[in-house]
Amino acid sequence: MIKQRRALRGALALAVAAGVALSALTGTGTSRADSPSAGGADQAELHRLLNRLTTVDGGPGALLHLRDRSGSTVLTSGVADVTSQAPVPRDSRFRIGSMTKPFVATVVLQLVGEHRVSLDAPVERYLPGVVPGNGGHRRKITVRQLLQHTSGVPDYLDYLNPQDILQDPLAHRDTRDLVNIALAHPPAFAPGTGWGYSNTNYLLAGMLIEKVTGRTWGEEVRRRIITPLDLRETSAPQDASAIPGPHPRGYVRPGRDAPLVDLTAFNPSVAGSAGGMISSGADVDRFLGALVGGRLLRPAQLREMMRTRPTGAADGRAYGLGLESRRLPCGGLYWGHGGDIFGYETASGATVDGGQATVMVNLDPGGSDAQSDDMKAAVQTALCQGRSTAP
């Protein structure tokens, strides 16, 4: 993800220098924080972290939604719009980037539970001829390896020119074309012999869903997850460039001292089933609570989702099937995912004992190097405080 941010930053600098018709806005806004009148744990540390995100880290605005057995809490800091200085709406919708992956993985695992897909079958069975070549190795890639990022398939974002997107942000990007960009390059490793995060894996997972069900991945997410859980603030747009409902503007910063660029509106087909969804803090928390609580998957499939492998990250992060685990400073694990997409960064987590937390900052790329760490700290602090106040 760091490499992706650097590439986006470089392309943005070129685009701004070339006079690309994007709205460049300046200003950092004032820092605010608010919360509902509900009692509970001392929230001073959460306020401090949110304010740090909108001051030291440079984000225009930030939001945290915490849900546990005692209720929900919303905290905000900074502004939704650097021009109007409007505060961040407490019911904000925003692009969730790779937090889309747990939704997609859940649909695939539901199909596994229905005996329509086999986790350890080759992808070739469901998508014949889509992942060809390289001495036959790619034909051995399994569904499990896609979901766990152990396929070795290159990430198409490593080879996509972000300036092309910036020059025509509303253009449709065909999923098969994006996959082919990645497959034109050699694999990072033989299937099953390593771990490497690749957005191409989840484009292929979305294609698999469509092949097996006859409906798009977004339609299946809506039918199987959004509607049953009543996630009214969640959507899987195909080409729609607008974010429905109240939302902060999404900004990018092409360089350390460069003005902010408003990239709220763009066509999410460039992210697709790897990162194209829109949601809210409340809806993401409800989804994660239902997922780790066993309401969306049968026990066998949930166990498979939670069978992790190390990623090599210094913080001990381990990756399952579209769901990653980290250790909490107060003990135990939490489950979730992060998300980066033009204009927004998110971090989410849930514990099996009923706590969920989601943090959003409306700046990506372009925040400080500490932005992601501070977001992770906010999620962990929220989950630990939620544990301490649960009855």
Rank of each mutant, 00 (worst) to 15 (best):
A171G: 07
G196R: 14
S325K: 11
R222T: 15
A105D: 00
T150H: 01
A370N: 10
T389N: 10
R52H: 08
G58N: 03
D155C: 00
P268M: 09
L160R: 10
P87I: 07
R144F: 02
W195V: 15
P244N: 01
A378H: 10
P237D: 00
Y197H: 13
L146G: 00
I141Y: 07
G214N: 03
E220G: 07
G343K: 12
M207H: 04
A258I: 06
I243L: 10
L119E: 11
A242Q: 08
A290Y: 01
E304W: 07
G338C: 08
E324T: 04
G40Y: 00
Q148C: 03
N161I: 02
A390P: 06
S325V: 13
G272L: 09
R48W: 08
R387A: 13
G206R: 10
C330Y: 09
H137R: 15
A205G: 04
D68K: 07
G338A: 10
G281Y: 01
P268A: 06
F103K: 14
G250D: 08
L263K: 01
Y251G: 06
G386T: 11
G294S: 06
Q85R: 15
T381K: 14
G133S: 09
L328R: 12
R176P: 00
D174I: 06
L203P: 08
G338T: 14
R69A: 13
E304H: 12
S84F: 02
A271H: 03
R224H: 04
G129Q: 05
A21M: 05
M305A: 13
L321V: 06
N134I: 01
P310A: 07
N362Y: 09
G194S: 12
R295T: 02
P36G: 15
S31W: 01
D230P: 04
D283M: 01
P248G: 01
M305D: 10
V79T: 06
V16G: 07
H47A: 15
D353C: 06
G39D: 05
D230T: 14
A265Y: 00
R90Y: 03
R93T: 04
R249H: 14
L63K: 13
P268T: 04
V379F: 02
M1C: 00
R95I: 11
E345M: 10
Q356A: 15
R125T: 08
R138H: 02
R327H: 03
V79F: 02
T55G: 02
G322A: 03
L14R: 14
P228D: 08
G78D: 03
R309G: 12
T83Q: 14
G366K: 15
D42K: 13
R6D: 07
H185L: 05
V292S: 05
A17K: 15
Q380V: 05
P36N: 13
